[in-house]
Amino acid sequence: MNGYVEAGYIMVLGTLSSYGVALVAREHAARRRVGTAAVEESIATSADAPVTDLTSPAPRDTPVVMPGELEQDAPGRAP
């Protein structure tokens, strides 16, 4: 043949196979990252399992004030 035909086939097949291999490699890498991230997430959530909602009050280091104490400290009232 004349070189043009070979060049055309090599260009088409080379590009498609390179793109295909790159896609599969990126897919495997992404799958590994997602797997790692899932493990990290499960560790992070299991360490603090009792508290999962930011809107709920924290269980520790929170001053607990009873209703009776508030009434006792109210101004204008006899001790």
Partner: peptide, 29 residues
């Protein structure tokens, strides 16, 4: 394959967000 890669990238983004939220929760506690 390109579709599956996009799906995994989306899952990765979502998981990254969930990990960040879990870390913030741990800090709050």
């Amino acid at each position: 394959h390109r579709y599956r890669l996009a799906e995994l990238q989306d899952a990765q983004d979502t998981e990254g967000l969930e990990i960040a939220l879990a870390e913030r929760r741990a800090e709050a506690v």
